[in-house]
Design a binder for these strands. Sequence first.
DNA 1: CTAGGGTTAG
Length: 643
Amino acid sequence: MCEKARVIVRMLQGCNSMNKLRKIHSHVIINGLHHHPSIFNHLLRFCAVSVTGSLSYAQLLFDRFDSDPSTSAWNYLIRGFSISSSPLYSILYYNRMLLSSVSRPDIFTFSFALKACERIRSIPKCLELHGSVIRSGFLADAIVSTNLVRCYSANGSVEIAFKVFDEMPVRDLVSWNAMISCFSHAGLHHQAFSMYNRMGNEGVCVDAYTIVALLSSCAHVSALNMGVMLHRIACDIRCESSVFVSNALIGMYAKCGSLENAVGVFNGMRKRDVLTWNSMIIGYGVHGHGVEAISFFRKMVASRVRPNAVTFLGLLLGCSHQGLVKEGVEHFEIMSSQFHLTPNVKHYGCMVDLFGRAGQLEKALEMIHTSSCHEDPVLWRTLLGSCKIHRNLELGEVAMKKLVQLEAFNAGDYVLMTSIYSAANDAQGFASMRKLIRSHDLRTIPGWSWIEIGDQVHKFVVDDKMHPESALIYSELGEVINRAILAGYKPEDSNRTAHTLSDRCLGSADTSHSEKLAIAYGLMRTTAGTTLRITKNLRVCRDCHSFTKYVSKAFNREIIVRDRVRFHHFAGGELIVIRVLYSLGVLLKLSPQDSLKGKVRETGDETIIDTEVVIMVWNKNITETRKSTKEKRRIQTPEIAET
DNA sequence: CTAGGGTTAG
């Protein structure tokens, strides 16, 4: 290399902006050095892969280069495009390389091309690259084959991803993590767990990435015991203070119904990001605790973390479930006016639910019309649900007609509409629904509930007879029902209400609903005082809701039921709200009415608590219940730490 | 001379 070229290469190594690069480039051209391979590579490298580079300039350089680019030159371009907004170009350059260059792809080329393929969502390209990887013998490279696993996974082909993984000659920790994430994303949570077990058997250690992926699966299937175990492992390998791990832990605890522990993790964090706050707000939202969600939202804004669309989803969810119409509307408005976020279908869905649940059905309808998504069946279905609650036949018919017109009707819609007709004693309408059901051969989704006991998950369906301890469970359930009745439970009379008609025709008369079986089993198999956590796929019916409430009183147990959309938290025969004064580490359990009546208020720098509500003090693993007194207590709120 | 991974709603 001549002295001039050496100087230019040194200049390029120190280059930090496109302006400088352009100057150097013209200098190169003047000196007639633009076909010098080393200089070309350095120019290309800066344009294609540095943060301040320019991919279009890289293309320009590439097109004007008149000898055959080296593999590394191709790699720069393929790499640059693979992480750009147009990954397709990455593939185009890869194809061009194969067809027009003497330079052959190496392991790096495949890594970058696979990364691009992961983002363009094309199974045929995946298969083609897979073939080339095999032919070139690079399948033995752990990174290349892990990229292949990710590629199939991102394209929705879990089976092939697993096959590639299973046949990998060399695997490392990242490969295992990729496979676990793949299962977790695909909703195959138990497969994700079994990968973890296999890792243990093969002596592979886990890291923070493994834990985050597994925690996400725990959150989805409410596997609290598994989640707690992962929390312990995170502490053992000292990654529990990573923001990723902490956020995943908060999400897991909140979705497993343990807000106490979610708050515990939240309090211990040194750094918090949007996801940290969102996880807490969503946690409160899905528990139906709008007031608390709003309080977290205020603290979030005060600590200068910018809320995003998901933040507002959590807020609106909490407001609609707690019946906070005014607050919901307020936050829906500031979402766009103050935070410049555009509401999407899900936000409109929450608003329709907010108005509908509160009985303001006309406003709910208006919301659908003013939204940008008035053809979305979910919104109409939400309205239909509200019409059922408030027994509004006219609007119910409007919603149902719309669903039929959109060809989006399902069995659930028919169930709702049928019960609206029944409630209105409209035999004709009822008959027309039956006809529709027959002609479309629609089946309802079977309901099931599960409960985690030890490391086992027990799943129940309606009138379940499959469980090995079935007989015992039914005799226990009889006993439980009797004790609940003594505590005040009134089983819903199936002959009295309008439900009868629809229940009979749909085969879901109020027999032993799956959550009743799960509760009976939980009472049998856990020691006195243990909290029961039930998860179910549908909504909890009114009778089971009331049943659970009285069981919590009769057996003195906290029972937390997670249904399709929210949590129901029962204790002492009440539906309760957990109010956390997180800056104090104080945890209050009170009824939603108390919360609404403002028995806990934060005014300026102090918090006022009416102590007739039950107070629990949260302190690491110790919870202590203090009995109420009638006087008012004033507690100084200290500065919020580390925000 | 250059590679791979992560968390939130329904």
